[in-house]
């Protein structure tokens, strides 16, 4: 940055090309991590835009929403075809997340934001601990009890031990090819009603705080609905795009989406997220879980900090 000048706030003013290059690089990373973990990538993009470049928070959030849609579309383009994403679960749960996001937007300002951040952070921290505890139980693929595997393999009628009646009726149970294990992993979906309720709450929180939809969706699918880790992140990836698309139009109409900032971010995210979805096929489920919980922990600390700071 040879021709760097300073403004009255002693802030380095960069040229647009320099700004876009940095944003592009950061976005490739955010996209890869986001599509791998089923998160939007806003947790990377927003701090960079506001803390490093001192961008107006309004434009930062507008850009972050575009980043979420980009992560989701590029990731899902591959994951849906590869059948890692459970399309039926995503469609059904989208009912709750979209209505929840609308409710959250309506409730904005009703609750104390600091209390919500602290609550959100605590929920994330507890989910992270639970997700780590679940780890030893998984031997092959994920937590599908042996008796269910036997039943499923035999193709017998009747109720699966771990599955729910609602999930039976909606035919949510499925299987995915785990490249890392070289296996087809069948799974049964449990507690669909509880999952739907949790998704509604996740939608409300993300609508209220404008963040963190994926970090709640993945634990809800993993812990409550017993969906394998890879399927949870891929399905969350599809879900966050639908919710974000609904609000992105609002941000566009308000003039919060600056093409010179959102453009380089979107291109970087599309490239990164495409790569991230390739990694999702080949990563081992237990490593994915550890990586997810690590990021979850960082986000939890950030949220609690915002709540008490």
């Amino acid at each position: 940055m040879s021709d760097c000048t300073y403004n009255s706030d002693r802030m380095c003013i960069v040229t647009m090309v320099e700004l876009s290059s940095v944003l592009f690089g950061v976005s490739v990373l955010a996209g890869a991590l986001g599509s791998l973990l089923g998160l939007g990538g806003g947790f990377v993009i927003v701090p960079v835009l506001t803390l490093v470049f001192h961008l107006d928070i309004r434009l930062a959030i507008g850009t972050s929403i575009v980043a979420v849609v980009a992560t989701s579309s590029a990731g899902a383009a591959r994951n849906v075809t590869e059948s890692i994403t459970n399309l039926r679960v995503a469609t059904f749960l989208a009912l709750a997340t979209t209505v929840g996001a609308l409710t959250g937007a309506e409730l904005a300002g009703v609750f104390d934001a600091r209390f919500l951040f602290a609550l959100f952070g605590t929920v994330l921290a507890v989910s992270g601990v639970q997700m780590l505890r679940k780890r030893p139980a998984q031997v092959v693929g994920e937590a599908v009890p042996d008796k269910d595997l036997v039943l499923m393999a035999a193709g017998r009628e009747g109720r699966a031990g771990g599955g729910g009646r609602l999930a039976d009726r909606l035919a949510l149970h499925s299987a995915y090819d785990d490249e890392a294990e070289g296996l087809r992993v069948p799974y049964v979906v449990a507690n669909t009603g509880l999952g739907l309720g949790l998704m509604y709450l996740a939608g409300i929180l993300s609508g209220l705080l404008g963040i963190g939809s994926g970090v709640l969706k993945v634990p809800a699918m993993d812990l409550a609905m017993h969906i394998p880790m890879k399927v949870s992140t891929a399905t969350s990836n599809l879900l966050i795009g639908l919710t974000a698309a609904a609000s992105a139009v609002v941000y566009f109409a308000r003039g919060d989406i600056d093409p010179l900032i959102a453009g380089p971010v979107a291109i970087g995210i599309l490239i990164g997220a495409t790569q991230g979805s390739r990694w999702l096929s080949s990563i081992r489920a237990d490593r994915l879980r550890v990586l997810f919980v690590t990021v979850l922990g960082l986000v939890a600390v950030e949220m609690i900090w915002k709540g008490i700071g």
């Binding site: 075809t81 059948s83 994403t85 499923m152 599955g163 949510l172 149970h173």
Partner: peptide
């Protein structure tokens, strides 16, 4: 391998995906 369990329709058939 069986896709799904106790399902009346195959979950998200290949064509839809």
């Amino acid at each position: 391998p069986v896709i799904g369990y106790g399902a009346r329709t195959p979950p998200s058939p290949r064509g839809v995906r």
